[in-house]
Structure formats: C-alpha cells, structure tokens
C-alpha cells in the first residue's frame, strides 16, 4: 500500500506502524461519572467496519507523524490522509465549543 503523507507525499505503507481506529484520539474525561464505562468503550469496543475506516498510522521510519488515514477495509483504497494532530486539535476545539 501507499500512503500519501500530507507533508512528505506518497510513501510505502511499510514505513508506517499501524495502531487502529482513529477514535483512539477521543480519549474520555477521567473525571466523568461514567469514566470506567467510557474508558472501557473507548479502549475495547470497535465499529470494525467493512468499508470506510478512519485509522491511525505512525510514520515510524519517517518523520514520526501520526496520521489519520481514511481507508476502505474491503478494497484497501485510501480516501484521505490527515495529520492526526490536526484532527485531534479540531476534535478538542469541537469539544470545548459544546
């Protein structure tokens, strides 16, 4: 596979280390009332879709960016690649706006 790194251009997926579902960015609040349940769901439960999947890849043999790759798990087609930090910042901004 080839991942089109937003900063570095197309790179072989072999340069990256895979983590999993990008919802791992949305770590729950440790002080919330249902923190135990929320952390359980966050860490252990997965949508695991057959189709589009937003997922985290680490450019370990490269610039050490974490990326959010949107990829089809049936065809392996990659639809978009974002810097995870940008995604995380946007998610944080959304949370604080709520």
């Amino acid at each position: 596979m080839i991942i089109n790194h937003p900063l570095l251009g197309p790179r072989d997926a072999q340069e990256f280390t895979y983590l999993g579902d990008a919802t791992l960015i949305n770590r729950p609040d440790w002080q919330s009332d249902n923190a135990a349940q929320a952390f359980h769901d966050y860490l252990y439960l997965r949508d695991n879709p057959a189709g589009e999947h937003r997922e985290l890849w680490f450019h370990e043999q490269g610039d050490r960016s974490w990326l959010v790759v949107t990829r089809n798990t049936v065809t392996h087609e990659i639809l978009s690649v974002e810097m995870a930090r940008d995604v995380a910042k946007a998610a944080a901004a959304e949370r604080s706006a709520q």
């Binding site: 791992l24 974490w66 810097m83």
Partner: peptide, 18 residues
C-alpha cells in the same frame, strides 16, 4: 525504546495536541 517513543508521540500528537 521504540514502543515508548511511539506511545509518547501518540500522546503528544493525538491526545495532547495543545
């Protein structure tokens, strides 16, 4: 060594981007 660094970057970039 590799794993800890990876995880620290995960926390830095994905959990504490600010």
């Amino acid at each position: 060594a590799v794993l800890v660094y990876r995880n620290m970057e995960f926390v830095r970039q994905c959990l504490c981007p600010e």
